[in-house]
Design a protein around this nucleic acid. Structure first.
Ligand SMILES: [Mn+2]
Ligand SMILES: [Mn+2]
Ligand SMILES: [Zn+2]
Ligand SMILES: [Zn+2]
Lengths: 156, 156
DNA sequence: TCCCAAATAATAATTATTATCATTTAGGAT
DNA sequence: ATCCTAAATGATAATAATTATTATTTGGGA
């Protein structure tokens, strides 16, 4: 339950209420949260906590490999508790991020990486495109219409 | 040589000197460049060109899939000419980005993705860690010393 | 209970990127 | 070749995201 208390203490970091709250929020969430989203939830519990503290601690937790940073498409960086890591199919139109149930860091890729002598500490794999719904919407696009109408896909 | 001229014209976009220069820079570079690095090189050729134009065109070129956006670890987004795409082993200490000669978007992964009905337009795969040199340097680190040792770099 | 490095809150500063808008220009039409 | 106009640009303001600064507070060991 509180293995993270040990992880922090063991390395000489203090156990503060701010850290408790941030980790609790990450633990209770299945989604990936932005620093700001975390900050908002933090403030619901304890309004006096500063957003800067959220950023500081997220950076620390990432450094300690207790949290992982996720760079999804556009928009701000997102965070999730390290562990059951997942890769995503991110829709460039609606922004949905569907979990892909497989990790490329295995088999052939793993072997090749190992051969390089590189010391791996994490990896990111993300697929960009259009989810089925958005993809269908594109299909139904207006007939023709010259320049830029192209795929009928307009930015988000 | 100038297949990109067609790609732009065909979709109704104009061939401007700014676009020529940006694409030429991307073409002559092996590294991935940030928007600002591109802007600097652009200004060496034609100082009157605005950084905003660089951003605007990079966004357009990405949208048209002529350029790909690369989110390496920290720092700003980087760009490279779309084509011979590669994935990287990025060193978190010295920043080196070594090409990995293999792409995970194949075999099992590919099959699973296809099953989801997701329309893939690009993907990113990147491995973070420490290159052999930096990894060795760490090895030679001071004997223990408790909290926060050195750069806070530990492995799991 | 004291002490002090570590952590925090508040806020300024910086970085990266996008938006606005007046002006220029590419390229099709005449 | 000249016109015309939507597209593109340059300059700059605005925004979003993150980091730095600094005075104050606090966790946890002695
Ligand atoms: Mn994985
Ligand atoms: Mn690939
Ligand atoms: Zn979608
Ligand atoms: Zn290195």
């Amino acid at each position: 339950m509180s293995t993270w208390v040990e992880k922090l203490s063991a390395r000489g970091y203090k156990i503060t209420p701010q850290r408790r709250i941030i980790l609790e929020i990450l633990d209770n969430s299945d989604r990936h949260l932005t620093a700001e989203e975390i900050g908002l939830q933090v403030k619901e519990i304890e309004p006096s906590i500063s957003l800067a503290t959220v950023y500081r601690n997220l950076n620390l937790l990432v450094e300690l490999q207790m949290v992982s940073r996720l760079n999804i498409h556009d928009g701000p960086v997102r965070y999730e508790l390290h562990g059951g890591h997942n890769h995503h199919l991110v829709c460039m139109n609606c922004g949905a991020a569907v979990k892909l149930g497989v990790c490329p860091m295995q088999g052939e890729v793993k072997r090749i990486v190992d051969e390089t002598g590189f010391e791996v500490s994490s990896h990111h794999f993300e697929i960009l495109g259009y989810c089925r719904e958005c993809s269908l919407k594109k299909e139904l696009s207006p007939t023709s219409a010259g320049a830029k109408g192209g795929t009928g896909v307009d930015q988000e």
